[in-house]
Amino acid sequence: MHSERELPAGARIALAVALSIALAAAVLALFTKDFSPALGQFFFEPFANRYFFGNYIADSVPLMIAGLGVLIAFRSRNFNLGGEGQIYAGAIAAGMLALSLPERIPPAQAWLFAALAGMVAGGLIGALSGILKALWHVSEMISSFLISAIVLNVGDYLITGPFQDPASNFQTTRQISSQLLLPRILAPSKLDISVFIGLALIAVLAIMSKHTRPGFELRVCGENEEFARYCGIPVALYQSAAMAISGALYGLAGALIVMGPQARVMRGFSSGLGWSAISVALLAQSSEAGILPSALFIAYLKAGSDHVMIGSGVPSEIISILQAAAMFFITARHFPVRKRRRP
C-alpha cells in the first residue's frame, strides 16, 4: 500500500541537510583509511581556530551574493546556468580596473569602481540571455551556459595573455596594490569586510521583494505570467531585468573575491562557484533570508571537503556529490511512504 504525502518545506530542508551530512560521513568511511580523523577534519576543523573559521566565513560570502543572484532569476522563472562565466567576467573586469587605478586613489573609491565594473560585466552577460529570450524565445538556460563557456575561454586568454604577470610562474594577473584591497577582519584569516556587503544585500533584497512594487511585480511574473500580462506588468522587461540583476550579483561576487582574498585574478579561481550558488538558492527555497543559512551550510560542506583533501587525500570534489545529494532531497516533493511497517 502506497500513500503519498507532501512534506512541508521545513521538513524537506531539514531532511536535505541531515542526509547530505550523513552522506558526507558515508563517503569518508568509504574512501579514507583512517575514518575518525577524516571525520574530525570534515566536521570540526572549520571551527577549530580563528584562521579556519574566518576562511570558512569568507568562502560563504560569494555564495551569499551569487546565491541571491540565482534566487532572483528563479523568481522570474529563469534558470541562469551562466554563473561560472559571470563570476569570472566580474572578477576580471574588477581586476583589470583595479590594476589600472593609480595607487593614491582613496580605497573606498577603488572598491566602488571595482564592484561596479564587476556588476556591469556580469550584468551585461546575464542580460544578453534575458534579451535573447525576450526577443526570440531562446532558452535562457542553454544560452547562459554557452555564453558562459565562451566567457571562460576569453577570460583564460586575458589572464594568461595580455594581463599575465610576467614575474609569476602561475597563470595569474599582477597583484593588486594592497592599499586598494578590502580591509581584513579576523586576521590572519582571509575574511574581509565583504561579509557585511553580503549581509546587507540579503537584508535589502529581502525587504525589496516583500515591500516594494518591483519586488511584488517580479513575484507575479514568476508565479503567473499570463495574469501578470493581464495586469499590465511588462513581463519581458522584468524577465530580462531579472537575468541582468542575476548576472550583476554573480559579477559582484567575483569582483569582491578579487578585491579581497585573491588580490589578483588567477586562471580558473572561481571554478565550481556558479554551480554551488545554485545549490544555495535551492536550499533557500525562494526566500532571501534563507540565503544566509544556506550559504553558510554549503560553505561548511566546502570547508570540510577542503580540510579532508589536505588531511586525508580525499578529493575536494566530494563537495559536488554532497551538493548533488542536497539538490535531490530538496527538490523531491512527494515521498512515497509505506503505510504498514515492513516486517
Partner: peptide
C-alpha cells in the same frame, strides 16, 4: 543539474 554535479564528484573521488 544534480546529476551533472554528481558525475563530477563521483568520477574525481
Amino acid at each position: 543539474l544534480a546529476v551533472n554535479l554528481l558525475a563530477v564528484g563521483v568520477t574525481a573521488v
